[in-house]
């Protein structure tokens, strides 16, 4: 069984697309669509990597990232941030808050896979 990735994203079609790409590549994929309860999902699944959207209902991806990094249990989980607002400012915020990598939508499928492999240490 491959490594587990948790996808936190609210747009159903994008969930579908990423899940498909990742599971075809051998990942085990869990998904979560709500920002408010995202932290619980992270604790429950204890994933090897996290794909985190910025604009989420209830709570923004930045806030979640901040919480993740503040908590020792989750501080080391690699996080790939996705955003549809591709301004420079957004990238800076993500870097400052400790995102492992940052990607702008729309992304190339292959790139997502490459990045995820990189941040989880090869595999």
């Amino acid at each position: 069984m491959g490594k587990q990735v948790l996808l936190i994203e609210d747009e159903p079609n994008i969930i579908e697309a990423i899940s498909f790409i990742l599971s075809r590549d051998g990942w085990s994929v869990a998904t979560h669509a709500n920002g408010e309860t995202a932290m619980d999902a992270v604790h429950r699944h204890a994933p090897d990597a996290l794909v985190l959207d910025v604009m989420l209902p209830g709570r923004s991806g930045y806030d979640i990232l901040q919480d993740l990094r503040a908590n020792p249990a989750t501080a080391d989980i690699p996080v790939l941030m996705l955003t549809a607002r591709g301004q420079k400012k957004d990238r800076e915020v993500a870097d400052r808050l400790g995102a492992t990598r940052f990607m702008t939508k729309p992304f190339s499928n292959a790139e997502v896979l490459t990045v995820l492999r990189e941040i989880t240490g090869g595999g």
Partner: peptide, 22 residues
Amino acid sequence: FLSQISHELRTPMTSIRAFSEI
């Protein structure tokens, strides 16, 4: 407004690109 436009345009675009690659 610009940021919003970007978001609103890129979101459907993401699905379109991902699935067309698939």
